[in-house]
């Protein structure tokens, strides 16, 4: 489609206005995180001076660094757990022929109908009875199995020609070796997409870490932010905003890097 100049200008105006509106809440927070509390209290929009004070204060007053490390550990655990389990399951659904495979596939579909929020009560009790409250395994293991990821990888594995599998069988290559040396390298892009998605959602998790942690030991950064918000005095918005900016930075960077892949991957997994 060629656009005339006037149409182009209209589009740029619409795009720019929308971008400003969408980005405003984040930009305001970003600016505030560098403003002195005096500037914020007097309702200044453009800061009179920029300061890193809020960032120093937020690390000083709360165990934010500790929360960040916890969040990284939990998110990586969930990401790798999901990748391993989903790729193993997808491999079985694509390359292995056995009785009951279709029934099991139906079981995987059925899991998508059970919302995690509706089963938090027994899950909380399970974790408590296992003694997993305030532990990394309690925060991560319940999320390892993932139907969506399995479907996404299954779709991708299907594109690997069946002849390759047959040839490898004749050559005496076992399933595990085939899985490691052929399937995983070929599906690298999908694995990365799924990994980014898994990391993003794990990092941003809220309800489960709220229930499964009772002290600062393994608490994640999202719950740390909640604490910061409830503890801080109302006139210390700069510090709270500095905390919020630090919390969103890793996921935003990841999103900007993987946006294109994520978009294709999610659409594929969703629609096929």
């Amino acid at each position: 489609m060629r656009l005339s100049l006037s149409k182009k200008i209209i589009f740029y105006i619409l795009l720019t206005i929308s971008a400003v509106l969408i980005f405003a809440p984040a930009i305001i927070a970003f600016l505030m995180s560098f403003m002195s509390s005096q500037d914020i209290l007097t309702g200044k929009i453009i800061p009179t001076s920029l300061t890193l004070d809020n960032y120093i204060q937020v690390f000083d007053r709360s165990p934010l660094l500790h929360y960040l490390i916890n969040s990284f550990i939990v998110s990586f655990l969930i990401m790798f757990g999901q990748l391993i389990l989903a790729s193993l399951a997808a491999y079985a659904f694509v390359f292995l022929n056995f009785k009951g495979r279709d029934a099991l596939f139906f079981v995987f579909i059925a899991t998508m109908m059970v919302p995690f929020e509706a089963s938090i009560i027994p899950n909380f009790q399970t974790i408590r009875d296992l003694g997993w409250i305030d532990s990394y395994q309690g925060l991560s293991i319940p999320f390892f199995a993932m139907a969506f990821g399995t479907f996404l990888l299954r779709q991708n594995f299907k594109q690997i020609p069946k002849e390759l599998k047959e040839a490898s069988e004749i050559a005496g290559i076992g399933d595990l070796k085939f899985y490691f040396t052929v399937v995983l390298p070929v599906a690298k892009t999908s694995l990365i997409t799924l990994g980014v998605y898994g990391f993003l959602s794990a990092w941003n998790m809220y309800l489960w870490p709220l229930l499964a942690t009772t002290n600062d030991e393994v608490r994640t950064v999202q719950i740390g932010l909640r604490q910061l918000q409830t503890q801080e005095q109302l006139n210390e918005w700069g510090i709270i905003m500095a905390g919020a900016i630090i919390v969103v930075l890793p996921t935003l960077v990841l999103l900007f890097l993987g946006q294109k892949k994520l978009q294709q991957g999610l659409a594929e997994g969703a629609l096929k």
Partner: peptide, 28 residues
């Protein structure tokens, strides 16, 4: 259009912002 990638990134950015952080932004 030229520079459309920047707009796309901005529009999709809220996906990377957690509920907790977004709530802090809006609370203000």
């Amino acid at each position: 259009l030229k520079g459309i990638g920047i707009y796309r990134t901005i529009f999709s950015s809220t996906m990377g912002i957690s509920v907790a952080a977004a709530s802090v932004f809006w609370m203000f």
